[in-house]
Design a protein around this nucleic acid. Structure first.
Length: 408
RNA sequence: CGGGCUGUCGUAUACCGGUAGUACGCGUGCUUUGGGAGCACGUAGACUGGGUUCAAUUCCCAGCAGCCCGACCA
């Protein structure tokens, strides 16, 4: 992509109405633009990042047998009345049409996916099933904050699994938990798994995937030696500084974190609410055991920025970067050939061919945070200068060496 | 939803009860070109509604909007 065509370009200053790092950097660098509190437009650069994160999540969901679907955001009131959510869930956005019909905007999708999947499930042979979607969610938060970390409208992957019994659910639960850790790791994040309360509809314990960041909204206690981690909401005996009861070696530390994913054991609640059954191995009617698995894609977007930046701007991991290479042409250099060749080689490249000062190009490149910066100028001659974002040193190399280097 | 703070060119800001200033951006021209260039000229602004006042962008009230703290948060 030519940088001169990027009409939603970086700003000179930080926005005055943003406080958190992710929002300041993302607005200034031209990834997102705020429409209102907790609601952002994704600009060309931001949409690329969103798609990258989405794709990592999609690949891992496909790998555990998830089938992707796309369900409506506009829901009939009846489904929500059926499960009790219409009255109990206070973050549910409710709308009234001009004919006085009432609707809900999806804040989660059990009310829709349960009848959908069970319409094709007749016997235990049709199970297990897992379907997921990557779509917008709406929650009427009293206070929206922290940029992309807590929006009233946000992009989320939500998967729902259906099983013939608890054992099969628990088997799959572990499979998905492992896939989740892989997703966060691919995105350059270290996620801790905590036990948390199951929310208003479930007595069961759920698991939350937390990434340490001061911009988060949860407090967790974790062991510095083993994997033990718990949300302070449900921590009872454990105290900061105490010895870890699980491994006996480590010390418990308290930290601020942001929840980037969760998994819930839904039990048979939704099957019962809709009275949808299948014929089990004994030939009897049975309710499916369900699981629900969420990952906040837009929140991950913000969390990556919170975790990976310096005083000059964002530092994208290549798995989430809008482009792999930022090609910068300075006076006396010609990047058009390299641009064409890189594109032909399938490399995603942003080409800065604008007629602006070198300093401005460098500053914007640091701000945007593309992993590899490649400069061509009078000085580089037949070669190119490669610098990795986040590293100080640069090297003069040939085009062939460049291709080699960036494909590592 | 309770509390606090804030609304001034596109952006970031300054001053002020009586002509609203600066920087950046943007436009034109020339000079520049390896870390947000220089000069010249030009462009563009007081959230909305009431009130006080001879006069309100400024003071007061309300509304709207944003941020922060709290509560809330499948």
């Amino acid at each position: 992509m030519l940088q001169s065509k990027l009409f939603l370009k970086p700003l000179r200053d930080y926005p005055k109405d943003e406080e958190t790092i992710n929002a300041k950097l993302l607005v200034r660098a031209g990834f997102v633009e705020k429409l209102m509190a907790g609601v952002y437009s994704y600009l060309p650069l931001g949409l690329r990042v969103l798609r990258k994160i989405e794709q990592v999540v999609r690949e891992e969901m496909d790998a555990v047998g998830g089938e992707e679907v796309l369900m409506p955001v506009l829901h009939p009131k009846a489904n929500w009345v059926q499960t009790g959510g219409w009255d109990k869930i206070d973050v549910l956005f409710k709308l009234t049409s001009r004919t006085e019909k009432e609707y809900a905007l999806g804040q989660s999708e059990e009310e829709i996916v349960t009848p959908l999947v069970m319409s094709r499930v007749h016997t235990y042979k049709d199970l297990p099933r897992a379907v997921y979607q990557i779509h917008w969610k709406f929650r009427d938060e009293l206070r929206s904050k922290s940029g992309l970390l807590r929006g009233r409208e946000f992009f989320m992957k939500d998967m729902y699994s259906f099983h013939e019994n608890q054992e099969d659910f628990e088997r799959y639960y572990e499979v998905v938990k492992a896939a989740y850790l892989k997703i966060f790791s691919r995105l350059g994040l270290t996620a801790k798994v905590t036990e948390a309360s199951g929310g208003s509809f479930s007595e069961k314990i759920s698991y939350e995937f937390m990434v340490l960041t001061d911009a988060g909204e949860d407090d967790i206690l974790y062991c510095d030696a083993c994997a033990f981690c718990v949300n302070t909401e449900i921590a009872k005996e454990e105290k900061t500084g105490a010895k870890c009861a699980k491994c006996g070696k480590g010390t418990l530390l308290k930290a601020r974190a942001s929840e980037v994913g969760n998994v819930f054991d839904l039990g048979t609640k939704y099957g019962k609410d809709f009275d949808l059954t299948f014929i089990d191995r004994e030939g009897k009617k049975s309710y499916p055991v369900m699981g629900c698995y969420g990952i906040g894609i837009s929140r991950l977007f913000g969390v990556i920025v919170e975790r990976s930046h310096d005083e000059k701007g964002i530092i994208w991991p290549r798995s989430a970067a809008p482009f792999l290479v930022h090609l910068i042409e300075l006076s006396g250099g010609n990047g058009s050939e390299i641009y064409k060749n890189l594109q032909a080689a399938g490399v995603e490249v942003l080409y800065d061919e604008r007629d602006v000062s070198a300093g401005e190009k460098f500053s914007e490149a640091d701000l945007i945070g593309i992993p590899y910066r490649v400069v061509v100028s009078e000085k580089t001659g037949e070669r190119v200068e490669l610098k990795e974002r986040g590293k100080k040193e640069s090297t003069l190399i040939t085009y062939e060496e460049l291709l080699q280097k960036i494909s590592e």
